[in-house]
Amino acid sequence: MQPGLYHILFISAALFFIGVFGFFTRRNLITILMSVELVLNSVNLNFIAFNKYVWPHKMDGLFFSIFVIAIAAAEAAVAIAIIINLYRSHQSIDVENAEEMKF
């Protein structure tokens, strides 16, 4: 059987929840960021798949994924800047040590 939309959607959903699982269980901020990247990628994959199989006469999904990639890059840069700043002040990037930021 030729793999199609459903297969790719399965991969993307699986990747999404893998990312979610990682986000829940990791304590290190950098690994949490990695989980977020996985989630973002699964979404991108979704966009591309829909673009290819459902609306091939349009390019919206493609552009969305390009913009998502751009924004993800920016997000990663900012997140890492914040993480490094946190490390400077707390000597740790454990998410549990950042609890006081709720205030």
Partner: peptide, 14 residues
């Protein structure tokens, strides 16, 4: 609920 634990928030969110 207002624990400051980001992951807890995420769980509630999900």
């Amino acid at each position: 609920f207002q624990s400051g634990k980001v992951q807890q928030y995420a769980i509630y969110f999900l």
